[in-house]
């Protein structure tokens, strides 16, 4: 059994200390080494919704797959629900739910048949009707996998991920292919799971999704965590100056950076009797902050 190490808190959902992973590969006949994860530290609390952001190739997927028990690490300490994922047994797997990035399987089975097959693997599966309802597949119970659109397939993936009532749910780009309405529905489902106490580790390329769902976001690049904060606090975003802008009577855009935008607007309205053209107050969006963080080359 797992023995508790001094550094690891048993009440933590995910604890990563000094994680490294290097891939040996070959390109153009030469052997190459790629450092996918280079000394990552991260702690995710129970009940938290955590979004891991980062460009493709930053080490996001490798990290997630190490946590899911798919890959072995080179060095570092990793505990997921108190267990080293490399030694995770069936009992541990019953406590986690995994939604992989893209899938093309289960084409011949209907939605209900797939769910029923996987329900047999779990000690306390959710009733299938409940899963259908939660992921919004109530209208398609007897549709075969091959007949589902991309977005509906993704809902099936999520349904299979939450079927076993996981304590920790991994969602790897879960809403790819969703229309805006399906995405809102999905977000509501995640809020529901969170209310039940499920810890969720999410990766996404949609920053509005991270902002809407996550308690905290971590940005990973070149294999290390370069930022870790709440969505509103990331990169000093919460303290960033607001920008008040309007078009003046000469037709020019005037921009005022200020910590007190309300005061600025108040002064503007007393000195300008009419309407201010194109008046706007903006703060840096999560996307602006994120892109600025990664630098000019997007890396």
């Amino acid at each position: 059994m797992y023995t508790q190490s001094a550094r690891i808190d048993p009440m933590t959902a995910v604890e990563i200390v000094g994680l490294t992973k290097t891939y040996q590969g070959k390109s153009a006949g030469k052997s190459t080494t790629t450092q996918a994860v280079a000394g990552l530290d991260l702690r995710i609390e129970l009940g938290e919704v955590f979004a891991l952001l980062g460009p493709n190739g930053a080490g996001k997927s490798t990290t997630i797959e190490i946590l899911e028990g798919y890959r072995n690490r080179d060095s570092g300490d990793v505990k997921v629900l108190g267990v080293d994922p490399q030694k995770g047994d069936a009992a541990w797997r019953a406590r986690i739910g995994i939604v992989l990035q893209s899938t093309k399987d289960l084409t011949e089975l209907t939605v209900v048949e797939s769910l029923a097959t996987f329900a047999a693997f779990y000690p306390h599966p959710r009733p299938i009707d409940e899963v259908l309802h939660l992921v919004g597949l109530g209208d398609y119970p007897n549709q075969r996998g091959s007949q589902l659109s991309g977005g509906l397939r993704r809902r099936l993936d999520v349904g299979l991920g939450i079927l076993g009532r996981p304590e920790l749910l991994f969602l790897d780009e879960p809403t790819t292919g969703f229309d805006p309405e399906a995405r809102r529905h999905f977000w509501a489902m995640i809020q529901g799971l969170r209310a039940e106490g499920t810890t969720i580790l999410l990766t996404t390329h949609y920053l509005d999704e991270a902002e809407a769902l996550a308690d905290r976001v971590g940005v990973i690049n070149h294999g290390t965590l370069i930022a870790l904060d709440t969505p509103s606090g990331l990169g000093g975003r919460g303290k960033a100056l607001a920008k008040v802008s309007y078009r003046n009577t000469d037709g020019r855009i005037v921009e005022i950076e200020t910590a007190t935008p309300t005061q600025v607007v108040r002064e503007l309205s007393s000195s300008n009797p009419g309407e201010l053209a194109e008046l706007k107050i903006t703060r840096p969006s999560l996307e602006d902050t994120y892109l600025a963080m990664l630098g000019p080359d997007g890396e």
Partner: peptide, 10 residues
Amino acid sequence: GLLKRLRGTP
């Protein structure tokens, strides 16, 4: 991806 999916279950 079926085998990978199954491997992620108990």
